[in-house]
Each structure stands twice: as C-alpha cells, then as structure tokens.
Nucleic acid binder design. Sequence first.
DNA 1: ATGATTTCCTGATTTAGATCAACATCCCTA
DNA 2: TAGGGATGTTGATCTAAATCAGGAAATCAT
Lengths: 234, 234
Amino acid sequence: MANLTSHIHCQNCSMAALCLPYQLDQEGMNRLDTIIQRHKPLHKRDVLVNAGAPLKYLYAVRSGSLKSYTIDDNGVEQIIDFHLPGDLVGFDALAEGQHRSYSQALETTMLCEVPIVSLDELVIEMPSLRKQMMRLMSSEIFSSKQLLGTLNNRSAHQRLAHFLVTLSDRFKARGLSSTSFRLTMTRADIGNYLGLSVETISRILSALQGEGVIDVQNKLVNIIEPARLRELAH
Amino acid sequence: MANLTSHIHCQNCSMAALCLPYQLDQEGMNRLDTIIQRHKPLHKRDVLVNAGAPLKYLYAVRSGSLKSYTIDDNGVEQIIDFHLPGDLVGFDALAEGQHRSYSQALETTMLCEVPIVSLDELVIEMPSLRKQMMRLMSSEIFSSKQLLGTLNNRSAHQRLAHFLVTLSDRFKARGLSSTSFRLTMTRADIGNYLGLSVETISRILSALQGEGVIDVQNKLVNIIEPARLRELAH
DNA sequence: ATGATTTCCTGATTTAGATCAACATCCCTA
DNA sequence: TAGGGATGTTGATCTAAATCAGGAAATCAT
C-alpha cells in the first residue's frame, strides 16, 4: 500500500467509468487530474453546499453518500436526490451559477472537487469531456423525468419497490453488491423522497420481508428475490 | 409583410431569448442560422419523435405545443413533459444518442430543427452557445427534480394549482398572457402528468371556478385571482 | 349537417395511505 | 455504560382521491 499520495488520480479511481473521466484517454485523465482537488472528508450531517451559494466547484462523490434537498416557504425539507459514489453534485447550479439545493452527507463521505472555471476551460479543448458532461446531464434529465412519471402513477408498494430496484442497479453499476446494501438514509428520508409517510415505508418494508422478497435488519437490506422485487416495481 | 423567406432567422424569432440564441451576438446568430432548418408543420396528434429513434436533430418549438411521454411495459402512456414555444425537445436523447420518449403535437406546431452534428461543431467554437446549452439542460434538471418533490408531497388541489401557475409563468416568459390561455392538452393528459384521475382534474377545475379563482370554458382558462392561485399551489 | 367518438362533468361508493397514538429500539453524548 | 433524543415499528381511525357509473358537451369524419 505505497499509494499515499496527497492528490487524487482519476486513473486509480474505481468510479472513473461513471464519472467525468469516462472515455478520456491517458492525457485527458492527466489534464483532468491537474484541476481536480480533494475535498476534506465530510462527516454524517455535514452540509456540502447551501442553496443560494455561488457555484464554485462541481463535486464528484468518491465514497459515501449525500442527499440533496430544497427547503420550501414553510421551512419544509424536500429531498430531490440521493448521491452515490461516481455521481456529480452541482449540475442544477450551472444554469444560474448558484446552487439551488442543499447537499448533506448521510455518512462519512469523500469527494473530489472540480473548479468550475478550470472545467470550463478544459471542456473547450476536450471533446470527450464535453460529451461526457452532456451525457451525464442528459441522463439526469431523463431519469428525473422518468421518475416523476413512475412515482406519480404508482402505489406505495410500487414506489418503494422501484426505489430499492433503482438503488440495487446503481450499486451494481458501481461494482458493489446489488442484493445486499445499506440504506444510509432514514425511513423519513425515503418517505420524503417518495412522497409517502414514514409509517408507510416501515409497513411496506415489513410486508416485503413477510413475503420473503427482501430481508431488512435496520439499515441493512438483503434482496432475496430480485426478480420478484422488480416485478413489484412494475 | 415582405418577410416570406423560406428560411428561418433567429434574429426575427420572438423565442430567441428563451432558446439557443440567447446571448449570442449577431455573428453567432448568423452561424446558428446557417445550420437551423425548418421542419414541416405538425398537425395535432402527429408524432415528432419516437422513443428508440436515433437522435439526429434537436428541435426547438416555434409555435404550438407538444407532449413527451414514455410507454411502459404494460403499454401505458406516461407523460413526462409539455413543450411550449422556445422549448427544446431532445435533451434526454443526448446521453444515448437515441430518443427515450415520444413527442407528439397537441395542436398545429411549427419547429426548427437543429442537426446534432452541426450543433456539436458549432458548440466547440461558440462558448456562449455552449453556455446556453448547459444552462438549458441545468434548468431542466432542476425543474424536473423540483417538480418531483412538489408533486410528491402535495394534495390534488395543490398539484393542479401548481400546474396552472407554472403554465402561467411559462406563457408570461414567452410574452403571452399569463392570465388567459388555452390548455392544449386534455384533462386526461393533465391527470396523467400530475398523477391524478381525470375526474379529479375536472372536479378541481370546477371547484376553483366555484371559488372564483379561475374561469374555465372548455380548454380556455382565465386566471381571475393569480395571487390566490399561487397561494393554493403553496 | 349529422351521427359517432372522444372528451368532460358530476354523483355515489370504496380504498389506499395519511394521521394519530403508543411503544420499541437504536445510537449518540456525557 | 447509562440516559435521552432520534429513529423505527405496529395498530386504530380517518380522509382524500380513486373507481364506478351515467350523462352532457364538444369534436371529428363523412
């Protein structure tokens, strides 16, 4: 374990395939490396960005997880996204140059920070980086619209099943287990995100366990019948 | 009325401020003009793009309106967006290079078509065009996530009020009346989009009319008390 | 124009999920 | 390691919106 460099290298990052470096050649990675900085680790509940703050960096999650949320006129938190390793935080801020949501760590979380000004310059010279940025944004547009439809017209059972399936798929894409993972967010967070009450989340998790589809021990989820769960999500 | 040119000019387009040309100088507009083509007008119910079709053009709505929707495994249509003049159709396709939703005209609709390959080239040389693309995509990301939250935790009344307020704001941004407009989509479309039944949409429109907040004559909506409606949307 | 079909409205009934309530368990902090 | 707030579970009740049902109006095709 000689790799104790103080700087991050996209080359060694297991999330590179999902993140900005995707399809970059060696030289491209090096150039990206020169602008990327390491952010000090966040602890659970630490806030990474505040809504309204000027956009200075785009953040890439190296490990851990965050939730993004807005706070409405009545002071009510509204979760709009959960971020896993490889995800980028801050796309919604590009339009106005300032963040439009809060992002808070759900557990100890490591991040790369990409200065927007440097990224802007790099994007001019590197078509594949530009492509990847577009790709990531485009995916985010589709998935959030898709989700809207999915949630809107589905029952509580289907919503939660869909949520678990989506998490499972995302973990899989990150080389992690698709059948066994930890819910780093609370039941209340899940309910808030899915538009359901905490009680409903609890009840449905219990019900799914009763049916033998999943096994839940507190935060730990084991998907016993992935196909069945996927079916329930419709 | 001498302007019978067969080609479109961004300079004269009333939607330019919302669309790709935003913040482009004269020369920029000219260059954009050289690649933009006019699409033949769509009639009501004409389908502009099919899900799965390769992405060749980004479309800008000149006049009229469209709905975008996916069709799930059970053949059920799920509306994910309504497009008004100035809006761009096709951002969700950039990631995979193929459209991920269907887009269908809700009325007679005029479009500009922007070849992706040419746009790709132009974007390299024109930082302000690139910025605007990013800006538009970023806005779309935020607004769809925001909408998700908004709809998820709100009552049917709030959802529909929010829908009307959003439409009103969008018409206003386009230089059209914010208080008097036509719903080009059916009640079923609205219900599908908001996750409510047709009957509920009908009932709430009647109720809002009863309370004197709006006046509805078939497709025509008159917002009598905009402040009150905004309040109802929370 | 005229019938046919789609769209829209209103009432009656049912139900999924919210809310209220009470308790159990977890996990911080001192 | 004990105590206390946060988090999670389960049950009972209530309610908003879905569903079912029947017409009325608008729109389309001939």
